[in-house]
């Protein structure tokens, strides 16, 4: 027997609070399961939101929650940018690498067929920018084909340590489309010490040389630095150095160190608190490029169809944000 008075209690208690506020309504006597169904049906009919049924009561939000993705900057909408890990092996073994890349790491390459299909599906899914990263992409013998598959579809950014621009690899670079490709080269400091302490002796010198080669070849170069919190005081001289290299201010990117992969310190980036950037590796689709080697942020091992993977990331992101908003509402009421 359903406690019919629950409906009357729902009307009275939700009317007593403002739109957007939450209220707890005791379910009263009776089997909680049909009561919960009755509450859900009432909420659906009257434009209120059932947040939870627990401890013998229903938690209701008066009115409907706003779309949790409203207010997000357009570029932050999941699926606006698509990251691809072309490979995981690298000529360096940086001590904070989030992807655990090194010369000993297995390649795990996406390959031209998947990259080509991803680029095509990305256009259909509304992606506006592609980003290729690794590992070190220039280790791949067919990198120019991979890049062409992307730049033929969308504006593309290629992340590299900039250290391998010679011989055949330089020839591959020269075959890339300067109009639709940006090279993002990693450089952590204005002088060799800090950079080399994480990335290896001599790496700073070769990275700076790589920046100059890429510029001389006519490419737009963005420089991205990974900066541990303790080195914030070095920002100003670093920007001055990049200015001297002719790197535009908008192309001087400073990233915080993430406690992911090989890093032993840095920002803790739990999936619930991280705005996603859909990332595809040979192993599947991940929440964010910073966690592309961590199973806790694997969304699906099915890469295709890409649109479904993007939709799943959006759904989970909406869910996390809605829950966070609801929690923010609950605490003042407790």
């Amino acid at each position: 027997m359903v406690n019919h008075a629950i409906i009357l209690d729902l009307v009275e208690r939700t009317a007593a609070v403002a739109d957007g506020a939450t209220v707890a309504v005791p379910l009263g006597p009776g089997d909680p399961s049909p009561l919960a169904e009755t509450v859900a049906a009432w909420c659906a009919r009257t434009g209120n939101e059932l947040l939870a049924v627990r401890d013998g009561g229903a938690v209701i939000r008066r009115g409907r929650a706003p779309d949790p993705l409203v207010g997000l900057a357009p570029g932050q909408m999941p699926g606006t940018r698509l990251w691809m890990y072309t490979n995981f092996d690298c000529n360096l073994a940086c001590d904070y690498c989030c992807a655990r890349s090194s010369p000993q790491t297995a390649r795990r390459a996406l390959g031209i067929d998947r990259v080509r299909r991803l680029a095509g599906e990305a256009v259909q899914a509304g992606v506006s920018e592609l980003l290729l990263t690794g590992g070190e992409p220039f280790l791949l013998p067919d990198l120019d084909d991979l890049v062409a598959a992307c730049t033929n579809a969308l504006p593309t950014t290629l992340l590299t340590n900039g250290m391998l621009f010679r011989g055949n690899r330089l020839e591959r670079l020269r075959r890339m489309d300067r109009n639709t490709l940006v090279l993002q080269i990693s450089l952590d400091s204005a002088t060799p010490d800090d950079h080399d302490s994480h990335r290896g002796t001599g790496s700073w010198q070769r990275a700076v040389a790589g920046i100059r080669i890429a510029q001389d070849e006519g490419f737009r170069v963005r420089v991205a630095a990974t900066l541990p919190a303790g080195q914030a005081h070095e920002l100003q001289p670093f920007h001055a150095f990049l200015d001297s290299l002719g790197i535009a201010p908008a192309d001087q990117v400073i990233r915080a160190l993430a406690h992911r992969g090989k890093a032993t310190a840095g920002l803790e980036l739990a999936i619930e608190a991280l705005i996603p950037e859909v990332t595809v590796t040979a192993d599947g689709v991940y929440w964010h490029p910073v966690s592309a080697d961590d199973t806790d942020q694997l969304i699906t091992s099915e890469i295709f169809p890409l649109a479904e993977a993007i939709a799943e990331v959006r759904r989970r992101f909406s869910d996390y944000r809605a829950r966070a908003n609801a929690a923010a509402q609950w605490f003042p009421c407790a």
């Binding site: 409906i7 049906a41 009432w42 009919r45 009257t46």
Partner: peptide, 13 residues
């Protein structure tokens, strides 16, 4: 209308 007419409380009102 707020109580869902007689549809959410079948057999009650």
């Amino acid at each position: 209308e707020a109580i869902g007419r007689d549809e959410l409380m079948p057999g009650a009102l």
